[in-house]
Write a protein that binds this DNA or RNA. Sequence first.
DNA 1: GTTAGCACTCATCTGTATCGAGTGCTAACA
DNA 2: TGTTAGCACTCGATACAGATGAGTGCTAAC
Lengths: 349, 349
Amino acid sequence: MLTDRQMLILRMVVDDYVRSMEPVGSRTIAKHPELTLSAATIRNEMADLEELGYLEQPHTSAGRIPSQLGYRFYVDHLIKMHSKLSPTDVDSIKSLFGERVNEVERVAQQTAVILSGLTQYTSVVLGPQVYETTLRSLQIVPLSDHTAVVLVVTSSGQVQNRTVTFPEGISLRESQRLVKLLNDRLQGTPMYRIRSRMMEELSREISRHMEDYEEALRLLDQIVTVIDSEATEKVFLGGATNMLLQPEFRDVQKATPVLTWLEHKDRVGDALREEGSSGDKLKIRIGGENDIAMLQGCSVITATYQVGDNPFGVIGVIGPTRMDYGRVIALLDAMSQGLSDMYARLYKT
Amino acid sequence: MLTDRQMLILRMVVDDYVRSMEPVGSRTIAKHPELTLSAATIRNEMADLEELGYLEQPHTSAGRIPSQLGYRFYVDHLIKMHSKLSPTDVDSIKSLFGERVNEVERVAQQTAVILSGLTQYTSVVLGPQVYETTLRSLQIVPLSDHTAVVLVVTSSGQVQNRTVTFPEGISLRESQRLVKLLNDRLQGTPMYRIRSRMMEELSREISRHMEDYEEALRLLDQIVTVIDSEATEKVFLGGATNMLLQPEFRDVQKATPVLTWLEHKDRVGDALREEGSSGDKLKIRIGGENDIAMLQGCSVITATYQVGDNPFGVIGVIGPTRMDYGRVIALLDAMSQGLSDMYARLYKT
DNA sequence: GTTAGCACTCATCTGTATCGAGTGCTAACA
DNA sequence: TGTTAGCACTCGATACAGATGAGTGCTAAC
């Protein structure tokens, strides 16, 4: 285990390196008023910390930078959690959640924008999860003889739509009948059970109501696809190009993989959802701790927001390993709380 | 006016520079079999072309590169339009439009993906325009006592939805009545006239039907906002990070503004829509010809796709000024044709 | 255990020399 | 008059050599 003094020094190295992105030398630490030791003593301690794996040296005559293990120890034991938010931050958050919400998705989008704006990193907001949401309404609006729009509305207010074409043997009237049938039977069913429920309960119903069984099933399949795609909640990205502001990504070679990975929202959503489903309220992945190869030069911090005891959605920040962990954690905390409150106000009254 | 030989040389310089991104010297051109002249003669011609403003020299002892004017002359007079597409390209496009379409938006998204994949530039696809689209259906699905989802479906199959909260004085029943009223009156109205139509025709109707006039208007305003946001068609981006593949954007300083600009789809959509509305089927903006400051280091090529004689949507490619114009134009041509055909098949039968 | 002193390391900076691609110009040639 | 060979010249790119200085590890004294 580390001595108090070693921990103090480690904390200083991390704080300083996060701020300046320059390897921290013994002199710099020695100057710090919190410590009354000479540079030589610091050097000894730093050598020890390096041997223990918490620090590393880019080259012989440079200062030290935190290793992955160093960051890990920092976030686990050394981080100063309190009073990290400036009044400006608090204001931004307050104004975001303070205004009257009548456009739920806009809030999620804005959360992403503000979170990336305040952190200068990339942010991701996953819309409300589906654990508790049920099917509210299924509708079909005809467009032409062969096309129509299928609409799916869930109890959480999410909407999915898709233009579908009718298979040859099926008329508009029949498909409307089919949709009405589905509506009656499936309303209130949890979203994640729809597919199985629909298939087992309805296939024989359909054979009774519809003349052309085969074709009806094909249409049914289209509709289920729409419902399924609703089950995957929406992904909002903020400040993807903030990545380029970070000195570690000034080299395009480094930045391209991450930017490209971020380009596909579904991938990003999948990754974050997995993080969020671990059960912890806050999850921190530092560098190589990330499973995704493209993110091994990054740190990812995720927080879940919820209503009551149900995990409900995920928000996260993606930035360089050299990240201001304390600040990001505080912001995520405040924002997830804000989202939780907002959804609570919206659905439980 | 340029002589034939000057034009030939200009074309060669552009072709060569587009391929290699290296200033083209007189020797390189002289080697070309299509020309039997010595390097010295080429040098004279190149000096003339530079004087005329078609070429420029990065520095005294370097080869020439095309100026903005040079590119302009190239695309106006020198470009080889035909047989630019390889069989692979044609296959990709065929397979995109060949498959049975039952998810219209997916096709637009895929168009963007394939277009950026084939060009290695960034692509933008604007969904069908609204000139001819009318309101098909307006629906409201209640979620709780105070919230509901408003759905707008247009004749072109576009759907917009928004969760709205009811103002204090208005009940669910009343809002349903309001929506039904709107539905009856506005169905078939062109989208761009909805706002004015609604306001002038309905405000007095509402005062008769609804108890609380003020509050009803507020709800109405929310609904109109939903409809308005539908009038702005959807924007699909492909390969935004392809920008980083281009050597001219290897420097993060150069890339960041463009990437950041691309991040806001509505901005991108606005810009492209303006291009598309000029009336020309194909529009090419080279470097400084772009109005948007962030794009002055880029070239933007847009093409409209249509059904019958109605302009319907826009697709475009954004890349460095040093762009393979011939290929991009051919691809845009093929893709806009494909989209036109697809929408024709979908709506006019 | 702490500290001052010192030799050592090594990335970075700066100045210089070299190289070579490409030019413009001139004079000779068809 | 148009074309070409020859040549001096320009200037970015590359390579190399010191010089600089931040920072280290080690030793010996406190």
